[in-house]
Amino acid sequence: MVHTGGAMRRRMDHMRGWRAQLMRLTSDNLACRRGGRMVFTGVSFAVAAGEALLVTGRNGAGKSTLLRLLAGLLPVAAGRVGWDGGAPDQSVGEQAHYVGHLDALKPGLSVRDNLAFWTAWNGAQAEGIDAALAALALDGLADLPAAYLSAGQRRRLALARLVAVHRPIWLLDEPTAALDVTAQAALAQLMRDHLAGGGLIIAATHGPIGIDGARELRIGATIGAAA
């Protein structure tokens, strides 16, 4: 089920060519304010190439907010995000995949066309599309309109972007939500491959997502302590 063919290997070779060892994403005393309220303050971490960071915390602690902030989709209220390595002229968001709660799919387009659009938008080669669909077991559904997909299939199609377009940082918000056991295993394999290839993963999650040795960042502790 997990596709680890030539396309995938080419991707990883490409990745190693990016001085993967030097890549490092750091956050220093990061804070985010939404609607006049501080969601979190003083979040610091460092993730190097090949490492995964699991962001945990209770509901409303700001896990999703942190990922959106790293993706450049929210303004930073205080602190800073540091990014060494990779392409120097690009921001973190421009070198990251963000898979949030919304799948960014158009129900009127076919499964392949949905993925093909994001591949083209990100300037990646169209050859990777079929391999990406196969990696998430969507190859049988390629010509079906996305409107017919179940929640789990939609999620898998959103995750297929990770494979079709190569980017060193993966920002995943509850990536296992709506996935069955087989799909979770496939995703875990993709994540392990990504890490082995020198990529970085930051995932917001409530439970284990199948990566050994991932570090944990618990946020929202300061608010909890005040209670």
Binding site: G72, Y98, D103, A104, K106, W118, N122
Partner: peptide
Amino acid sequence: EDGSLDLLMMTP
């Protein structure tokens, strides 16, 4: 609404 705008913004 479907999250596409986020991804449209995350490119050079």
